[in-house]
């Protein structure tokens, strides 16, 4: 589904990714761990097309297409979803209105008719129930005044609405208490199908108790320096990142 080859990327002239390779197949969950400044968030920003980052070398093939040639909204319509570490507040734009626009833009890209009002409301109801999203939140402005947990829940709700093939969860656990973390993880697990894949970027092992990865990668200094199964996360938790240098 996704093939990243020798990816180099810079921000403001500083090289952050220095030859990253990663292959992801349908049905897989990949965790990416690593110390601060290793390039974890840069990877999610580069994959989604954030304008502040420049790819200087390498390629990314997503479902047979050159991802790096696409505008950010086209990547999203093709099925890449990022659950933001810091979801952005959009005053005056309600969650309902935002999602109606987003879902219909995606449908148009797929050559489908826009959803009729009743169909859209049915879809909203179904997805709200699936991820436990509060009715009150969907009528409010996107993320405005939401608690940390509500923002992350809203991300997972949007993911449910857009049904991406590849979802990237960037530090979804940051700022969440254990109950919120469990609810968010349950949502992610419910959305998993044999044809979707996820990249879970996290600092700590605890999220991986709930979203169990098939592979754990350690990112350090812009490259993947170690890959293993889920037990690698436990080892990192126990010994810290320092043991990688031994």
């Amino acid at each position: 589904m996704l093939e990243i080859k020798n990816l180099h990327a810079t921000i403001a002239g500083k090289e952050i990714l220095k030859g990253l390779n990663l292959t992801i197949h349908e049905g897989e969950v990949h965790a990416i761990m690593g110390p601060n400044g290793a390039g974890k968030s840069t990877l999610s920003n580069v994959l989604t097309g954030h304008p502040a980052y420049t790819v200087t070398e390498g390629e990314v093939i997503f479902r047979g297409k050159n991802l790096l040639d696409m505008a950010p909204e086209v990547r999203a319509r093709e099925g890449i979803f990022l659950s933001f570490q810091y979801p952005v507040e959009i005053p005056g734009v309600s969650v309902v209105n935002f999602m109606r626009t987003a879902v219909n833009e995606k449908r148009q890209h797929e050559g489908k008719e826009p959803l009729k009002a009743a169909e859209f409301l049915r879809l909203m109801r179904e997805k709200k129930a699936l991820v436990g999203m509060d009715n009150k939140l969907t009528n409010r402005s996107v993320n405005e005044g939401f608690s940390g947990g509500e923002k992350k829940r809203n991300e997972i709700f949007q993911m449910a609405m857009l049904e991406p093939c590849l979802s990237i969860l960037d530090e979804t656990d940051s700022g969440l208490d254990i109950d919120a973390l469990r609810i968010v993880a349950e949502g992610v697990n419910k959305l998993k199908t044999p044809h979707t894949a996820s990249i879970v970027i996290t600092h700590y092992q605890r999220l991986l108790d709930y979203i169990v990865p098939d592979f754990v990668h350690v990112l350090a200094d812009g490259k993947i320096v170690r890959t293993g199964g889920k037990e690698l996360a436990l080892e990192l938790e126990e010994k810290g990142y320092a043991f990688l240098n031994e």
Binding site: E73, A76, I90, F98, A102, V103, E105, Q158, L162
Partner: peptide, 14 residues
Amino acid sequence: DEAALFYMQQRCID
């Protein structure tokens, strides 16, 4: 707000 624009682009909106 550039951050809001990018967030919306990531949600399929040009």
